[in-house]
Design a protein around this nucleic acid. Structure first.
Lengths: 159, 159
DNA sequence: GTAAAATGCTGGACGATCTCGACCGAAATC
DNA sequence: GATTTCGGTCGAGATCGTCCAGCATTTTAC
């Protein structure tokens, strides 16, 4: 599906999405029209969902992040989901198996804001909140190479 | 700190980080040298952490995502953190308050891989895993405008 | 209050980059 | 073995980015 050149391009773009076609071409050993065409197809196929910018929330005044686990009360699932989606401070939300129905990331400017937002959900769901103290791994894509974890472990041993 | 033009530029770039300077300039009503200078300063100040690309994990064969809560055994905190950082399938990890020390996102290609990875942590930490069934909100930045939630609520009422 | 300096913008020229079309070669298809 | 398809290169013309000079406005200094 993806060949080495595609993965190579993606790896470069993950680090800098504004790399020029010319530079990309030079780094992977193709001409720029070819790179252009490959990017077009990666977007068309949905491999590349978007070129975007990673903004420091702190620069926007969001000094606090929290992980909120949300368990809607019986019959309230859809209302709660809609509510979460409509609160822009939720920067991420996953619907998961298990007792907690949703796990979401919340950006807030103060503890007061955190309280205010959770209050809006309080009568429709049980929530449990964990404040983020540090981010050992900031968002990164999974490995682009085709190797499975077992293969990788083997490769490491071979050294 | 950030003025309206900066926020405007960021909003456009969040949707498409490869927008040309010329287009950016036209959309915010500046000349392209001015836009270029503003972007340079946004990067310099760390507001823009990176221009990057959002890749569909499915296109790389990662058919499964999970949220893993990790509680290292006494004395194992640092070893566990290092371990997590070194496993590239962890696509995100936050250190949080509360009983669970870490909350992490895991990309895997199969249930077998999931099991294999969790096994590598099993003797150093307790984990509890929730499989992601859907993603109501995919990663998005917090609101760029300066309004607090209270202000926003007021503004909505005023309509 | 005013002069000086600093800041941030514009416009135009020049060089770099992108895009388009024509063409080519290898691999798959018939 | 001929033909089609696919992915690539090259070069020309169009587009874009960067640099520089100049200008207006605000800030600083005296």
């Amino acid at each position: 599906m993806l060949d080495d050149l595609d993965r190579n391009l993606l790896e470069i773009l993950v680090k800098d999405a504004r790399t020029s076609l010319k530079d990309l071409a030079a780094q992977v050993g193709l001409s720029s029209p070819s790179v252009s065409e490959r990017l077009r197809r990666l977007e068309e196929r949905g491999v590349i969902r978007a070129f975007t910018v990673d903004i420091d929330p702190l620069a926007l005044g969001y000094t606090l992040q929290a992980i909120v686990r949300i368990r809607p009360l019986p019959g309230k699932l859809h209302i709660v989901q809609k509510l979460i989606e409509d609160i822009p401070e939720f920067g991420e939300c996953d619907k998961v198996t298990g007792d907690d129905c949703f796990v979401a990331r919340l950006f807030v400017r103060s503890i007061g804001d955190l309280d205010g937002i959770l209050d809006r959900i309080a009568d429709k769901a049980e929530t449990s909140t964990a404040i983020i103290k540090a981010q050992p791994i900031r968002r990164r894509p999974p490995p682009l190479d085709a190797a499975s974890p077992r293969d990788r472990a083997k490769a490491l041993q071979a050294i």
